[in-house]
């Protein structure tokens, strides 16, 4: 799977999972705060540096097609933003036309520079946020995540359900494919059916055995869990523990400095710092004045 843990010993692997979760939240905060493409590009580049540190490009090389799709949809997004932008600033007139009764008194068919930068900023923002996902999932093993959840005071039963589900999902997939094969051998070929047939009759012969085999498995699992003292009325030990090491502290300090720089920069150039309109929950008297380019 694309997001499954791959063992490694990079600084990113050694980070405390909580730091990594914190980092993802931090990136969301910062990228929503930043509006100009240059600062956003710096954020993106620094995430890419972390990618390189963790060895992710090598791991994801199999998924080149995903990047192509992302790139293409990003380009479409930028193009759409560019063409639909209608606010001030310099523009190139391409093919001007008016739509009758359109409430805005400006013609379509102009390429605004501001529209271009706005679209680019949006795309970089999304890419930044998505790039944090593999930084967490590819470098953190399931037991580590479970321990962090434990540290964050999630109940143990929830953690157990989480890690067992992760453990068994590949098994469910292989069972599903085995069953599908078994039915193909009886001339029941889901992949070759029409959509109507799929809906009408395709899944019963596949889903029934899958369901039965899962039920049987869960019986076995219950025996295995109980005979290993699950739920014993004692205080459970947690062998895996994660301390914040100096790598974590360095990371956190760099993050803090960067955040300070962003806020300072925003205030210096814009006169205020506003993460974005997503701060709807901030009371109106505390909200900075709304910013609309004119």
């Amino acid at each position: 799977m694309a997001i499954e843990y791959v063992a490694g010993n990079s600084p990113i692997h050694r980070l405390n999972p909580i730091t990594k979760v914190f980092f993802s939240l931090y990136i969301i905060f910062v990228t929503l705060g930043l509006r100009d493409i240059f600062s956003l590009a710096i954020v993106l580049v620094s995430i890419m540096v972390l990618w390189a540190l963790a060895g992710i490009p090598r791991l994801l090389s199999r998924f080149k097609f995903l990047f192509v799709i992302m790139l293409a949809s990003g380009a479409i997004w930028v193009a759409a933003q560019t063409l639909l932008w209608m606010f001030g600033g310099p523009y190139i007139s391409v093919f001007e036309f008016n739509i009758p009764f359109w409430p805005v008194d400006k013609p379509f068919g102009r390429i605004y520079f501001q529209g271009l930068t706005y679209g680019l900023a949006m795309v970089i923002r999304i890419v930044c946020i998505f790039s944090c996902v593999p930084l967490l999932t590819l470098t953190t093993s399931v037991p580590q995540i479970a321990v962090s959840l434990q540290k964050l005071k999630f109940p143990y039963k929830f953690n157990f359900a989480f890690s067992t589900a992760v453990r068994f999902s590949p098994l469910i997939f292989t069972t599903y494919y085995d069953i599908k094969d078994a039915q193909v051998l009886r001339a029941h070929d889901i992949d070759k059916m029409s959509y109507l047939d799929k809906v009408r009759k395709a899944f019963v012969p596949v889903v029934t055995p899958l369901f039965m085999s899962l039920l049987r498995r869960s019986d076995d699992l219950e025996i295995a869990i109980e005979s290993r003292a699950f739920g014993a009325p004692v205080k459970r030990t947690f062998v895996e523990e994660f301390r914040f090491t100096h790598v974590d502290y360095i990371f956190l300090i760099v993050m803090a400095l960067f955040a300070a720089l962003v806020i300072y920069g925003q205030i210096y150039w814009q006169g205020y710092f506003v993460p974005s309109d997503w701060m709807w929950w901030v009371p109106s008297w505390a909200k900075p004045p709304t910013f609309l380019p004119t």
Binding site: S141, P143, T164, V166, R167, R217
Partner: peptide
């Protein structure tokens, strides 16, 4: 297969 439940 089904008696093992942990990720490692």
């Amino acid at each position: 297969e089904s008696q093992l439940l942990a990720p490692s």
